[in-house]
Amino acid sequence: MKAVFILAVILLVLLLLGQVRVGGRAEFNAEGFFLWLRLGRFRIKILPMKPRAERPAKPRKAKKPKQPEPEKPPVPLPEKLGGALEYAKALLPVALEAAGRMWRGLRVDVLELELTAGGSDPADAAMLYGYANAALGGLWFPLTTAFRVKDGAARVKLDFDAPGMTVYGTAELSIKIGTAVWTGLRAGWNALFRVLAAKKRLKLKRRQRKAA
């Protein structure tokens, strides 16, 4: 009974962990480009990186000369290409299936785009405002069609004090740990069997060529 209870608790913990979302957040503004990794509610800043303190270079030890290895006969180019093509044929369906599953599980939690049109001349600023609206409209529709956007906003502002066109954008993408792990395990399992089958076919082709 105790073992069943422990197993149930472990399964519950794994189920809860599988619902935690991981991903990243990117932001672009006048100060530059910023990037964070996300694990649940925790974020780790990746860019811009803090400058590392320079350490004094350690003296390198003299390496012992390596003994020359016996040369192996080169593999013929047609055989190399045939093997690479066989493995590519075997792994491509697995990669496409995994990419499709990851894509369907991916969610855009936040997507925000803001263009600010400005300038000292009101006529030029108004013309720039019209261009910005057209550009943002053409960009926003494909993005919201390609991704599942949970919280999105797009706007164009007119500011006569702004020096021309300024751009601000932020995007936060995430996927459930369970979806990513299950997709990886499924892809790895399928890839293993496909690689073994491809290796077996290559060996059979080599034997047939030698017999001929």
Score class of each variant (00 low, 15 high):
residue 1 M to V: 13
residue 2 K to R: 14
residue 4 V to C: 11
residue 4 V to F: 14
residue 5 F to L: 15
residue 6 I to D: 11
residue 8 A to K: 08
residue 9 V to H: 00
residue 9 V to Q: 05
residue 10 I to G: 11
residue 10 I to V: 15
residue 12 L to C: 10
residue 15 L to S: 14
residue 19 Q to K: 10
residue 20 V to H: 00
residue 24 G to Q: 06
residue 24 G to T: 04
residue 25 R to S: 06
residue 25 R to N: 07
residue 27 E to S: 11
residue 29 N to I: 02
residue 30 A to E: 13
residue 32 G to V: 07
residue 33 F to N: 04
residue 34 F to C: 02
residue 35 L to C: 01
residue 38 R to A: 12
residue 41 R to F: 06
residue 42 F to V: 09
residue 44 I to Q: 02
residue 44 I to M: 03
residue 49 M to D: 12
residue 50 K to I: 00
residue 61 K to S: 13
residue 64 K to R: 14
residue 64 K to H: 12
residue 64 K to A: 15
residue 65 P to H: 06
residue 65 P to A: 12
residue 66 K to V: 11
residue 69 E to G: 13
residue 74 P to S: 04
residue 74 P to N: 05
residue 74 P to F: 01
residue 74 P to M: 00
residue 75 V to H: 05
residue 76 P to N: 06
residue 76 P to R: 02
residue 76 P to C: 02
residue 77 L to W: 08
residue 78 P to L: 10
residue 81 L to T: 08
residue 81 L to C: 07
residue 81 L to N: 10
residue 83 G to F: 13
residue 86 E to Y: 00
residue 86 E to T: 13
residue 88 A to F: 12
residue 90 A to V: 08
residue 91 L to T: 08
residue 92 L to Y: 12
residue 93 P to A: 01
residue 96 L to T: 09
residue 99 A to K: 13
residue 102 M to L: 15
residue 102 M to N: 10
residue 105 G to Y: 02
residue 106 L to W: 06
residue 108 V to A: 00
residue 115 L to N: 01
residue 117 A to N: 00
residue 117 A to T: 07
residue 119 G to R: 08
residue 120 S to F: 03
residue 121 D to G: 03
residue 123 A to I: 12
residue 124 D to L: 15
residue 124 D to F: 13
residue 125 A to I: 01
residue 126 A to C: 00
residue 129 Y to E: 10
residue 129 Y to I: 06
residue 130 G to L: 05
residue 132 A to F: 03
residue 132 A to Q: 00
residue 136 L to A: 03
residue 137 G to E: 04
residue 140 W to D: 09
residue 143 L to K: 02
residue 145 T to F: 14
residue 146 A to W: 10
residue 146 A to D: 07
residue 146 A to Q: 12
residue 147 F to C: 04
residue 148 R to V: 08
residue 148 R to E: 07
residue 149 V to M: 00
residue 149 V to W: 00
residue 150 K to L: 09
residue 150 K to R: 11
residue 152 G to V: 02
residue 157 K to R: 14
residue 159 D to R: 12
residue 159 D to I: 11
residue 163 P to H: 04
residue 164 G to I: 03
residue 166 T to D: 08
residue 168 Y to R: 10
residue 169 G to I: 08
residue 171 A to V: 13
residue 172 E to I: 01
residue 174 S to V: 09
residue 176 K to S: 13
residue 179 T to Q: 01
residue 189 W to V: 10
residue 194 R to L: 15
residue 195 V to Y: 06
residue 197 A to G: 15
residue 197 A to N: 14
residue 199 K to T: 15
residue 204 L to H: 11
residue 205 K to N: 13
residue 205 K to L: 14
residue 206 R to C: 08
residue 209 R to W: 12
residue 210 K to V: 13
residue 210 K to N: 13
